[in-house]
Design a protein around this nucleic acid. Sequence first.
DNA 1: CATGAATGAGCAATATCATTGCGCGAATGC
DNA 2: GCATTCGCGCAATGATATTGCTCATTCATG
Lengths: 168, 168
Amino acid sequence: MILLIHAIVRIKMSQNNLDAIDRQILTILQRDARLPNTELADEIGLTPAPTLRRVRRLEEEGIIQRYVALLDHKKVGRGLLVLVRVTLDKQTRQGFNDFATQMQARPEVLECYLCLGDIDYLLKVSMPDLDAYQHFLVNTLAAIPGVRNTASTILVKQEKYTTSLPLE
Amino acid sequence: MILLIHAIVRIKMSQNNLDAIDRQILTILQRDARLPNTELADEIGLTPAPTLRRVRRLEEEGIIQRYVALLDHKKVGRGLLVLVRVTLDKQTRQGFNDFATQMQARPEVLECYLCLGDIDYLLKVSMPDLDAYQHFLVNTLAAIPGVRNTASTILVKQEKYTTSLPLE
DNA sequence: CATGAATGAGCAATATCATTGCGCGAATGC
DNA sequence: GCATTCGCGCAATGATATTGCTCATTCATG
């Protein structure tokens, strides 16, 4: 029983109580996920063994969700980025779920958010060019039942892009 | 001289001519950047040596830009995501550069785009909570000279988030 | 205070993995 | 058809990750 309470306390704490070393690790791995553990250990001033154990713990706790490679959009033929604001017709819960499910299935939709305000959904869509986007808009988005209105904004220049969250 | 021409041709081709194996590699590494080279080799049906050489080539060509760890926003105390539309006052080139530069320096601004349409800039901002966001809006954004107007949209639920570009 | 439990670091041995040079075969150009 | 290029596989080497163990430090408790 006491063990259980201890376990609960530890889980709760571990989700928010990152110590300075944890934050260092996360900051570095957000910048370079492939840094060898030995070098990571050097940078934070620990030996490789405890460093690796901390990384594994952060992974298991889901604080580190995954490691990904970021590609050059233009060089893989996806130079066009569009933000789409979508308004749905009937604001029933079912309609919302359907829409989100369809967006999850479309690989060109990189991000999809339910949002507050005068619109319902926000999409970030990756496309090769305007032709392809127009095709997506007409044949995919507008074809979804319940979509009342869409407004597109072409993101001309990416001034900043990072996936790194600041860790106080 | 002929060597130079060859080099130029190869660079140009390499930027767009990804073969099927390259695309397989990129697709996998976009999903799991830490997959050991031996397993990557298994999945694509090559031996480790040529697999690694392809990965290195993709890195050198800048097709793979970098490897990053993605964190759980809530678990690191950044549960609030906001999209901000910014309109600038004077649309001189200098004003635009200044704004972009300031955004690049702010760690809570994850993305910043110059865009077409009725607004000038789009920001994706990561925040701990509404208090912090209000502070950012008043003391940081509104304090920048040239910012005429801002409109914020709170992204309530992340239905989809991926950094993986589809590779035809 | 002293003491015992718990947490987390370091060390060292082992297993896994990355890296490189070399030879071979298939595709390409002349 | 022959030479050249390109990219694969093999094998040896070096680097790196991983694990069990021991020890120091901290913190709660008698």
